[in-house]
């Protein structure tokens, strides 16, 4: 048995004969696995890949859901690139959101993880409590709660008034502030990167810190010279995942602005604009084009992250 695999990877000379046999054998051996994978495979091809390819086709058409799609060439893409002020507004809002929420959330998550890593009593309980917002975060109920918190007569303004005598604005309905309430909502859901950071911190060998202590390095220097470099693989992972999530953010803006992206497009996330075009105004072709641009955007960012990784991510093995 153990000889079999080596014969067909050994070299070109054996291939013509050995390969089909090996394949047949591999198929025979793997057939039950594929059988059990079938539900997932059907789901992947039928519900993910198929619709994705269909939307690629639709992005070159005019399609209102009711009448058959009508070929439009690159018209949708041309309009997005040249004559769509709402696209520009949505890009601004989305990039601002990504640029603010991802770093802030990760810094916050790392700070909390480091606090926990110092060993406090009842850690599992605290960990669970701090993780809770991440479980609730994307839900409609929390978005509604956020609306109440940041309303002109909400809790935030009550506290500002009682403690500092400041009369706060209506945060969510003022175009200058509304996006920041959504950034705060995102930062508040720091639970999952925190857990990953905590696991990463646990991996750092304590003898390195002991050695650094003996050499007279203070806590700040230890953080920048030991903790941060050894944590870079985990930071890298968190940056990629959180950036993708931030680009795809939808629910909070949808609920807080009731689907309008208002006031004055100040919470018009890219996904929200896509949703409006698709389901409010029935321009499915245009929305498909927007969706593919989002795919390309996320893929580009991920590619940049991976390409840059070799310069700053430090793997110790």
């Amino acid at each position: 048995m153990s000889v079999q695999p080596t014969t067909w990877v050994e070299g070109p000379a054996h291939r013509p004969v050995a390969r089909p046999k090996g394949l047949r054998l591999a198929w025979g051996r793997n057939a039950p696995a594929y059988l059990f994978l079938t539900p997932w495979l059907i789901g992947f091809f039928g519900l993910t890949l198929g619709p994705a390819l269909a939307s690629l086709y639709l992005s070159f058409t005019d399609y209102d859901l009711i009448q058959a799609p009508h070929w439009a060439g690159a018209a949708n893409y041309v309009r997005i690139a040249t004559a769509d002020p709402k696209f520009v507004a949505a890009m601004k809002v989305t990039f601002l959101y990504v640029a603010l929420s991802v770093p802030l959330k990760l810094i916050f998550a790392l700070a909390i993880a480091m606090m926990f890593n110092r060993g406090i009593r009842g850690l599992p309980i605290y960990r669970a409590i701090f993780y809770l917002p991440s479980l609730l975060g994307a839900s409609v109920a929390i978005s509604v709660l956020w609306r109440q918190l940041f309303a002109s007569d909400g809790l935030i303004n009550l506290v500002l008034w009682q403690l500092f005598g400041i009369e706060g604005p209506s945060w969510i309905s003022n175009p200058n502030y509304s996006i920041y309430t959504l950034v705060i909502l995102s930062v508040w859901q720091f639970g999952s990167p925190m857990i990953i950071f905590l696991a990463g911190l646990r991996q750092v060998p304590t003898d390195i810190y002991e050695a650094a202590n003996l050499d007279g390095a203070g806590p700040v220097r230890q953080f920048f010279r030991i903790t941060l470099p050894l944590l870079t693989p985990v930071i890298f992972f968190n940056v990629v995942i959180q950036t993708i999530d931030a680009f795809k953010a939808f629910t909070p803006a949808f609920v807080i602005s009731s689907g309008t992206g208002g006031p004055i497009n100040s919470t018009l996330f890219y996904t929200l604009y896509l949703y409006q075009e698709a389901f409010s105004f029935l321009r499915m072709g245009y929305a498909s084009a927007l969706a593919w641009i989002l795919v390309v955007m996320i893929a580009t960012f991920t590619a940049i992250s991976f390409l840059s990784a070799r310069y700053w991510v430090h793997y110790d093995d």
Partner: peptide
Amino acid sequence: PADVQALDQLTIET
């Protein structure tokens, strides 16, 4: 004022 009106989501409730 505008920031009060912006809370109106074109429903009776708001």
